[in-house]
Structures are given as structure tokens and as C-alpha cells.
């Protein structure tokens, strides 16, 4: 009898131990998530009672308010840009830093610094640097290049934000790649050398596949983080000029907190959630197979 009780205790104990974490998740993640999807079918401004409107919010987003589509396009463009540049730059830096010299050790630390700065500060500093009479234009003029209007031009506003994001993130991602570049056994590269593989072939056939788990991880985290870009836009451009640098999360934020259209905002949020879900599934389906796990 006593024995049995002991076993039941053993069965229950793990659940008891994860209960606090699950409770927190339930309150702060799952409940808001479901509530958001639920709200997206209502017209709600927090003052008057909720009113069920069916798919109307979604209809509004896609067929009435053109600015949602603009924000969505910008976000996709921005995400693609960050993925391409962030991953290639991180890879280049990782390969460059793989030799352990004291110079590299210092560079590595400096590259990591932006990661620990708050986006708020970084955004404000860049806003200042990218001012019409800021440092960036001063440098351009030294080389006799025409000044750019950076944040003030609809052509370059989103690009400027992309630059900030890459500057802030690349050191961190390079560090992740660096640790796995360093863990590639040197004999593998020597074996490739003996197999008469050129530098490029060695890179594409040995190094890159060996890094595939980390690259895959980078791809997913960068995609998710870029789709959720917000603070830099909020501080540096406010989505402007026009809505040339408007992005999804900033759109959601505006609908909710500036215009009190909580239903519409929830619908946009639900779409963001769906996009991320679909992207992740696609990544795992298509690329997951090509990732080599040790």
C-alpha cells in the first residue's frame, strides 16, 4: 500500500514541478494568444461593449485599409534583407575570426557589444548619425559622394532601419556561427585538401554543411525577430515618411493604442501569428531535411 503511494507521488511530482512555469505561460502567453484570435472577430474599443463582426476586421485589413498591405510588404522586404545580409555577414565574420589571434579576440568582443545595448539607445544614436548633417553624410562627403537623406527619404528609410538591425545583431549571430566554425575538426579540411578540393568547394561541401544546424537556427530566429521589428521603427521613423517604413507590429500598435481599434489590431496580430507559423513549418519541411545534425 505504502509502495503504491510512493509510485503515485513519483508520477505526480514532475507535473507539480513544472506547474509554476506552465501557470506563468498560461497566463502570459496562451491566454493572450487565444484572446487575440477571439478578439479579432469583434469590434472593440474598450469603452463600448464588444460587437461580433465576423470576418469584417480581416476584410478591412486586406481590402479597405491599404496601409496594412503596405506595412506587410515592408515587413517582408525588411525580413528578406535582414536574413540575406545578416547571415552572410555573420558567416563572413565568423570565418574571418576563426583564427585565434589577440586581434580577433578583441574584435570579437567589440562585435558583441551592440547586442547588449538597448535598442532604444542604439536607435537614438543612429538617428543622430543618420541626420542630414550627421556623421554618415560627413563621411560620404569626404569621398565626394552625394549626401543621403537616410531616414527622411522614403527610398532609404527602411534601408536605414535594416542597417541598424544588422549592426546590432551581426556580432551576436557571428559569435554563434564562430563557435561552430571552430568546432569543425581541422582534419576534415585537411582531408578535403588531400582530396584536391578547391577552397570554394571545401567551403560549400564541407564547411557549410557542417554549419547547417546553426544556420538553420539563425534563419528561424532571424525570421521571427525581423517580422516582429518594432522599436527601431517607432523611434527612428514612426513608420514614415508616408508609410514607407511602416511594419506589421508598428501597425498593430497604432491600431490599438492610437486609434483604439482593438479588434482590427487583433486581426492583424493573428495574421502575423499565422505567417510565422506557416514560415516555420515551411522551413522545417523544406530545409529541415538538408540540415545535418551530429
Amino acid at each position: 500500500m505504502k509502495h503504491k503511494q510512493f509510485r503515485i507521488g513519483k508520477l505526480v511530482l514532475p507535473y507539480v514541478m513544472i506547474l509554476p512555469a506552465v501557470a506563468l505561460l498560461a497566463v502570459f502567453t496562451f491566454y493572450p494568444l487565444f484572446n487575440m484570435v477571439y478578439l479579432s472577430f469583434f469590434k472593440y474599443d474598450m469603452l463600448t461593449p464588444k460587437k461580433f463582426v465576423g470576418w469584417d476586421n480581416y476584410y478591412q485589413l486586406f481590402f479597405v485599409n491599404i496601409d496594412f498591405i503596405a506595412a506587410l510588404k515592408n515587413t517582408v522586404f525588411y525580413t528578406l534583407g535582414v536574413i540575406v545580409f545578416m547571415i552572410s555577414l555573420a558567416l563572413i565574420f565568423a570565418l574571418w575570426l576563426q583564427r585565434s589571434t589577440w586581434v580577433n579576440a578583441i574584435v570579437q568582443r567589440f562585435m558583441f557589444l551592440p547586442h547588449i545595448c538597448a535598442m532604444l539607445t542604439v536607435a537614438m544614436v543612429f538617428q543622430w548619425l543618420m541626420d542630414d548633417r550627421g556623421l554618415f553624410n560627413a563621411v560620404l562627403s569626404v569621398f565626394n559622394l552625394p549626401a543621403l537623406r537616410w531616414l527622411n527619404s522614403s527610398h532609404t528609410a527602411l534601408l536605414s532601419i535594416l542597417i541598424v538591425a544588422i549592426w546590432k545583431g551581426v556580432g551576436y549571430y557571428a559569435l554563434i556561427l564562430l563557435s561552430s566554425v571552430k568546432s569543425i575538426p581541422p582534419e576534415l579540411l585537411e582531408a578535403a585538401d588531400l582530396d584536391d578540393a578547391g577552397k570554394l568547394r571545401t567551403f560549400f561541401k564541407i564547411t557549410l554543411p557542417m554549419l547547417s544546424p546553426q544556420l538553420f537556427f539563425l534563419l528561424i530566429t532571424i525570421t521571427i525577430n525581423s517580422f516582429k521589428v518594432f522599436d527601431a521603427v517607432r523611434i527612428m521613423t514612426g513608420g514614415g515618411p508616408g508609410n514607407s517604413s511602416d511594419v506589421l507590429v508598428f501597425y498593430i500598435y497604432r491600431q490599438a493604442f492610437n486609434y483604439s481599434k482593438y479588434g482590427l489590431s487583433a486581426a492583424a496580430g493573428t495574421i502575423l501569428l499565422l505567417i510565422l507559423l506557416v514560415m516555420t513549418v515551411i522551413y522545417f519541411r523544406i530545409l529541415g531535411k538538408r540540415v545535418h545534425y551530429q
Partner: peptide, 26 residues
């Protein structure tokens, strides 16, 4: 020259066939 390494150093991301074929392809 061909070398068999102390710890083999076969390419973990390639199949057995890929490993044998790599030098020939190059």
C-alpha cells in the same frame, strides 16, 4: 598521396558513397 587519418576524418555530412566519391569529383 592518400591518407587515412588517426581519427578517420570522414566527412560526416556526406553518405559513404559521397565520401568515397568526393576526391574523384574534384
Amino acid at each position: 598521396i592518400a591518407m587515412v587519418f588517426q581519427n578517420y576524418a570522414i566527412y560526416p555530412t556526406m553518405t559513404v558513397k559521397g565520401n568515397i566519391e568526393f576526391g574523384l569529383k574534384n
